[in-house]
Amino acid sequence: MKTLKYSRQRESIKASLMARHDHPTADALYTSIREEYPNISLGTVYRNLNLLVELGEIQKLTCGDGADHFDADTSPHYHFICKECGQVNDLLLDPMDHINQLAQESTNGLIDGHTIYFYGTCKNCLGNN
């Protein structure tokens, strides 16, 4: 594997993501990173986020709203997505590894993991109705 050159911008993007728990989109991270690096381009943010995903340092979440969200927590965990406001939150559930075995019994392939998103209406949106 090729050695990766250090990048202050990449480190800033990763640090910004690690400080957040709202699972931001690349656009939202771009807005916050611009405060420190006013000349950074949206393309640079996208490239570095995708590189961090490839390196396994962050997760990319495709939640069905048309925009990828990013999560610095790479441990196995689940997410709740509000269908009203689009907010993505971590769920405090233990990993359900038994699902892998159940799925394995239904396929000829090899199951080595799973991703689960739970959809509904968040507390804030319920309060606004």
Rank of each mutant, 00 (worst) to 15 (best):
A19D: 07
D65T: 07
L55E: 14
T3N: 04
N128P: 00
I33P: 07
I33F: 09
I111M: 12
E84R: 04
D90W: 12
S41H: 02
Q9I: 15
L126K: 15
T74R: 01
S32W: 00
K123A: 08
Y30P: 01
P38C: 06
A26W: 04
L61C: 14
G64F: 06
Y117Q: 06
G64V: 10
T3F: 07
S12I: 00
G86Y: 04
H98K: 14
N50S: 12
I81E: 06
L29W: 09
A28N: 10
G120S: 13
A26K: 13
N50M: 09
N124Q: 14
E57I: 06
L92H: 04
G66K: 14
C85T: 09
L42G: 00
V88H: 11
R47F: 05
Q104L: 05
T44W: 02
F118M: 07
E105C: 03
S16F: 03
G66W: 09
H114G: 07
T44F: 00
A15L: 05
K83V: 02
N108C: 08
H98G: 11
I33N: 10
T3L: 11
R10V: 03
C125N: 08
K2S: 08
L55F: 04
P95I: 08
F80N: 06
Y117I: 02
D112C: 08
